[in-house]
């Protein structure tokens, strides 16, 4: 296996605050990789650095041997990195189907001209992505909700729709920001099954998660952040018994 994503010495400062401090790790192709850490450890900031929402103050982000440091979000998406958001961000007044169709945007080739005159190319492309969108909705179990507005879906459905939209960008790496937040045990099981399905499609999964059960079961390797610094890296069992990790989560024992 080779590294699909290399985060090399990434630092992100906001004024005087160091949100991410010289973090280095690699995500291997085909694995489930988890990023954990206490609240405010800089996990989402790191995600934002990887997906181009923030430009790292220092360090590099390399994806499939391409330097993506500081590329804007639409470029990282086109390069093959998709993401979801911690606080779900759907297009609330677009139908579930349109949300997923929008996700195909960066893989479509219709030009302004095609759209203006509804050329046969445009029609066939629209038809193709509509079919593919239905397929993705089916994958996340939302095929019966395709015409509903995103805002009218239940919470769990919204989370899954966001994953479907991310998959529509045809990613090689999928970043999930706390995908199990607010889920009941049953939903968590379904989510883990969905993660396995995604893996089987050849997509590497990189997730932030608070639920240790999910993390320990789903992921092959874990990186732990605390106060912006990497304090541990390794397989779940190793990380669970790491004294620095225990200290970060439980505080210094007396």
């Amino acid at each position: 296996m080779s590294a699909i994503l290399r985060v090399g010495g990434v630092t992100k400062r906001f004024g005087g605050l160091v949100a991410v401090d010289n973090v280095t790790f690699e995500v291997e192709e085909g694995e489930v990789f988890a990023l954990i850490g206490p609240n405010g450890a800089g996990k989402t900031t790191l995600f934002n650095c990887v997906t181009g929402f923030y430009k790292p103050t220092l360090g590099t982000v390399t994806f499939r041997d391409r330097n993506l440091t500081g590329s804007p979000p639409h470029r990282t998406a086109k390069a093959g990195i998709a993401r979801t958001f911690q606080n779900i961000r759907l297009f609330e007044y677009m139908s579930a189907l349109d949300n997923v169709r929008l996700g195909h945007h960066c893989r479509m080739h219709s030009k302004l001209w095609d759209s203006l005159f509804k050329t046969p190319f445009e029609r066939s492309e629209e038809k193709r992505i509509t079919e593919h969108s239905m397929e993705l909705l089916k994958l996340v179990g939302l095929e019966r909700q395709s015409e509903n507005y995103a805002r009218n879906l239940a919470y769990g459905q919204q989370r899954r729709l966001e994953i479907a939209r991310a998959l529509a960008t045809d990613p090689k790496l999928l970043l999930l920001d706390e995908p199990a937040a607010g889920f009941n045990p049953q939903e968590k099981v379904e989510l883990m099954a969905l993660v396995q399905t995604i893996l089987k499609r050849g997509i590497t999964v990189f997730l932030i998660e608070h639920d240790m059960k999910v993390v320990m079961q789903a992921s092959q390797r874990i990186v732990v952040l605390d106060h912006g610094e990497k304090i541990a890296e390794g397989p779940p069992v190793e990380v669970r018994n790491n004294p620095r990790v225990i200290e970060a989560y439980l505080g210094k024992s007396a």
């Binding site: 929402f53 639409h74 998406a77 998709a82 677009m94 945007h105 960066c106 960008t169």
Partner: peptide, 13 residues
């Protein structure tokens, strides 16, 4: 609707 989500979905806003 949401510029951030659009950018994340690959739209050059």
């Amino acid at each position: 609707e949401d510029e951030t989500a659009a950018a994340a979905s690959g739209v050059n806003t």
